[in-house]
Design a protein around this nucleic acid. Structure first.
Lengths: 237, 237
DNA sequence: CAGTGGTCTAGACCACACG
DNA sequence: GTGTGGTCTAGACCACTGA
């Protein structure tokens, strides 16, 4: 069959997924491929967009599951707030997993972004945001260690660099310039977020500025599209 | 060879692409797959992210080509402006291709978004934005025909509904609520933008509001990530 | 027409979770 | 161990472009 069954396959899959209750398991890929009359490769490609939309979740070694109502995390982009604040507002459990703090030295790229000399000491904090029992975002903060050192990260650090700096009060923060993009997940990020390599992610790259105009922190964020809803109100010029 | 050559393949591909001058053609997929020691399927998947980043362009029946410097279209999201304005600012040629104007009637979804009765007459305008000789964005505007009818779209209409309404002055526009997402390209949109089905796109879904608080227009936009750079300045709360 | 990318298949083997 | 999803292969055929 040299047909192009993709369109029909998508529709069949949508029907199947909608017909199943939340948290139920789909047939295994070989079984489902046989039932839908396509090869496993084609089936897997069609499943991709459903996973992007947060309708299904695939777990290696376990199975593919229908997700009921995704707890949508909504946020306006005019005001800078931490993920913890965003998630807390909708009354959802949130936790930082795989919290990692590293001491690194600035390479050329870091030095340029943070406006510091090459070789300066930096603190890098990376973490996973878990909601509804699955990772939904991956965040990496990088900042000079004279602003935030290992010693500053004693007990009670939840993972949010922004919240920590705001609590401390110094340096005084005023704004963040955030660049918005859409990217393919790299192998590393895909594994952390438990998605497929190449899947779609919303990507923020932001610089946090102090009242004196210095760059305090650079953050890279990757969000699962199906779990977040970002919006902005734009004035007519 | 049951190896996982993906990581190395990506690096090899990056080296190859960077080593070639702009606009030069890559070897054909079977040839390149053989040279890099992987199957064609694996090669194609690795090429995906390079296409997303705007580094290469694939043209069916022709070949795969290296893109030199992508003309980056940059825009802040605080102010609403048309693509024509954005592109014009950086002194690039821009044109609306495949301009299509349809008269449709509101289904349930349209009615909800535009806050009008089901079955109302609507005008739908869709178009492709071409820059640097390739489609870079696909835009669909939907609005009540009593606000914009076929007759209003006489000579000189360039495709931008926003610019037309602003020139006309009525209704008075004040703001747009824009939702930002990342999606997989559907088969239809992928064909229009000359990319692969499932590729990454930045997606805006926006409602344009009049000074009286009415929804004037709903627009859906799809942008090739490699060609656009959106940013926003976020105030610390 | 010849040559390119686009789609799909059948099958292999690996990595992982769980009992 | 069994059963699941994750990766990769070799090969087929289609759709398209341009000489």
């Amino acid at each position: 069959m040299g047909h192009h069954p993709f369109k029909r396959l998508q529709s069949d899959l949508a029907t199947l997924i909608d017909s199943l209750p939340a948290d139920s398991q789909l047939p295994s890929e070989p079984t489902l491929a046989l039932k839908l009359g396509v090869s496993r490769a084609t089936l897997r490609e069609a499943m991709r967009s459903f996973e992007t939309q947060g309708k299904i979740r695939r777990r290696q070694g376990v199975g593919t599951f229908v997700i009921g109502d995704v707890p949508l995390i909504e946020s306006g982009l005019e005001i800078l707030e931490s993920i913890e604040t965003m998630v807390g507002r909708i009354g959802l459990s949130v936790s930082s997993h795989s919290l990692k703090v590293e001491k690194i030295t600035a390479d050329e790229e870091c030095a340029l972004v943070l406006d510091i000399p090459i070789g300066s000491g930096l603190t890098r904090i990376s973490r996973l945001i878990m909601t509804d029992g699955r990772p939904a975002a991956y965040l990496v903060d990088t900042l000079p260690e004279n602003i935030l050192s290992h010693a500053d990260l004693a007990a009670g650090f939840t993972g949010s660099v922004l919240d920590l700096l705001l609590r401390r009060g110094l340096p005084r923060l005023v704004s963040s310039r955030t660049e918005i993009n859409a990217v393919n997940a790299t192998t590393e990020v895909a594994h952390l977020l438990e998605i497929q390599r190449g899947d779609v992610l919303i990507n923020f790259s932001a610089c946090l500025y102090s009242s004196e105009g210095h760059v305090i922190d650079h953050s890279l964020s990757y969000f699962l599209p199906g779990y977040f809803k970002f919006h902005v109100n734009r004035r007519v010029g």
